[in-house]
Design a protein around this nucleic acid. Structure first.
Lengths: 229, 229
DNA sequence: CTGCCGCGTCAAGATCGCGTCAAGACGGGT
DNA sequence: ACCCGTCTTGACGCGATCTTGACGCGGCAG
């Protein structure tokens, strides 16, 4: 999923943008000042940044430059300043686009799409590993002792949810809701069937699982470590 | 030297842009209609195109689309139409930027600089190769065992998205969104038809594909290596 | 000791997704 | 206006996958 960082000190704008972006299937994080924006970039490396120039702490331009020093990710400037000089300076500082407030939501969305399309970063790899078993979730590739193992779509979906919280307990309800959709939550039946299949395919001894553990009455956990992709 | 193609039917604009661009060290060619614009692109392959939407012969949008069918070069739209819908449509058709007339010369220059910077810094020519099949995405030239193969615009678009992540899984949703535009994502139908066509044209044995692989329920992947352009 | 509940297992029928083919719609070029 | 290539849409068969039901086991509480 494409991950957008929205940086603006106006809560109303942050909110509207958040709603619209999420409605279009983006994952959204927000920041109200330059400092936290840079922090989010370091921690979560967005696919695209929408950046307001008028921030309380740092000048928007210096945020842009700091950002450009370390990352190539696309930046769309969103600013109340409509002077030509401002636009030129921002664009020459590395901005990919410059939109003035007030703005049309649809246009901004289209410009964000264009910016993302150009770089098309793709998803960050998610790989977990334990006891000779490798689960590359983004590539949908599984191995046991070096031999490839085929998993079905639903099995992958389940593995994905468990792998995201590798090592931690995931409740049955959460699993059902994430894999089968909202409206599910009581069908623990499904989980039993699929966990059995996953164990049969991946565990050394399916009867005594060490990878996919059951917390009776609670949920399941995947005992594995995230490894570099 | 950076080579700019200016397409506009208004001689005054062409002239002003020409002067300003040349003063900044660009090599400039002009065209007054869509037909000659496409011709120049074929012959001299500009680094960037400034394209007016209101042309006498062809719709500016179709020029853009035709251009996109064969080349990845950046296009900055310059248009009198300032409706949001027009902008959205152009940007989603592959435009890199959209500037409305009347425009500030300095701003346009900055946007052109930004467009050039992005692509020149960005992607090298994209050529993938495997099992006697060569796919030159930037040049839009395909070969199987030395014999040229014709691909349609949509087929190329699909190949381009797959080739960009050669060897990696690309989800059905990503493919649909990138090729058919945002708003698509559930029409896996299209993919089946087009993948079948690509296999028929490129695979040694279309019934047992080795190039365009299916991950059932997930997406497709192109098994090929990037080679020098 | 006994009944109940949640878990794991297995198997069978229903359903879904993929590949294939072909007909109609669309649009550009002449 | 017509022709051609391309894109969209529908139908079909087949194999893989999902759902569903039944059963046994073991822990726990009464």
């Amino acid at each position: 999923m494409t991950f957008v960082l929205v940086v603006d000190d106006d809560p109303a704008i942050v909110r509207t943008l958040g709603i619209n972006l999420r409605a279009r299937g983006y994952d959204v994080e927000t920041a109200a000042d330059g400092r936290s924006a840079l922090q989010v970039v370091e921690e979560r490396l967005p696919d695209v940044v929408i950046l307001d120039l008028g921030l309380p702490d740092l000048d928007g331009l210096s945020v842009l430059q700091r950002l450009r020093e370390r990352h190539a990710l696309p930046v769309v400037i969103l600013s109340a300043r409509h002077q030509t000089d401002d636009k030129v300076e921002a664009l020459d500082s590395g901005a990919d686009d410059y939109v003035t407030k007030p703005f049309e939501m649809e246009e901004l969305m289209a410009r964000v799409r264009a910016a993302v399309r150009r770089t098309s970063a793709g998803e960050p790899p998610l790989v977990v590993e334990a006891e000779g078993v490798v689960l590359d979730v983004t590539e949908r590739h599984a191995e046991r002792d070096g031999a490839p193992v085929r998993l079905t779509p639903t099995e992958w979906h389940l593995v994905e949810v468990l792998a995201r919280r590798a090592g931690h307990l995931v409740s049955q309800q959460d699993l059902l809701r994430e894999v089968w959709g909202p409206g599910y939550g009581r069908e623990s039946h499904y989980l039993r069937v699929y966990l059995a299949q996953l164990r049969r395919k991946l565990e050394a001894d399916p009867a005594n699982p060490t990878l996919f553990l059951t917390d009776p009455g609670q949920g399941y956990r995947l005992v594995a470590q995230r490894s570099a992709g």
